[in-house]
Deep mutational scan, measured.
Amino acid sequence: MTVLPKDIPGDSLKVTVGTANGKPGDTVTVPVTFADVAKMKNVGTCNFYLGYDASLLEVVSVDAGPIVKNAAVNFSSSASNGTISFLFLDNTITDELITADGVFANIKFKLKSVTAKTTTPVTFKDGGAFGDGTMSKIASVTKTNGSVTIDP
Rank of each mutant, 00 (worst) to 15 (best):
D101W: 00
K23Q: 13
A20P: 12
V114T: 07
V114D: 07
T2R: 08
V122P: 04
I107G: 00
S140Y: 05
V62E: 13
G146H: 05
I150D: 14
P9I: 07
L13S: 07
G82T: 15
T33I: 11
F86S: 03
G128D: 02
T123I: 07
P31L: 11
V114H: 08
D53Q: 13
A139R: 15
P121M: 04
E96S: 03
A20T: 11
G44F: 02
T16R: 12
N91L: 04
G65L: 09
L57V: 10
A72E: 11
G10F: 10
D7A: 08
K110W: 00
S147Y: 04
G18T: 13
G133N: 04
G22V: 13
N81E: 15
T119G: 05
F124D: 02
D132Y: 04
A105D: 00
D7P: 11
K69Y: 10
S61Y: 13
F48M: 07
G131P: 01
A20D: 10
D7S: 11
P5K: 05
T16I: 14
T119C: 13
G102P: 02
V59E: 14
L4P: 12
L50I: 08
F48I: 04
Y49M: 01
A129G: 04
K108Q: 06
A100K: 04
S140G: 12
K41H: 09
V103I: 06
N145H: 03
Y52E: 03
V3G: 12
T149K: 14
P152I: 11
P9R: 10
V148H: 00
F75E: 01
N106C: 03
V103M: 03
A72C: 13
K110A: 04
V37F: 09
G10M: 11
D11S: 13
A64T: 08
M40Q: 06
I8N: 11
I84P: 00
G25K: 10
K112G: 02
V15G: 09
F130A: 03
G128S: 02
T92H: 02
S12A: 11
N106P: 01
I8M: 09
V62S: 05
A20W: 06
A38I: 13
V15A: 12
N47E: 00
G146R: 04
A54L: 09
T27D: 09
V28Y: 05
T45R: 00
I138V: 08
M135F: 05
T94A: 04
F104D: 01
D11M: 14
S55A: 08
N91S: 06
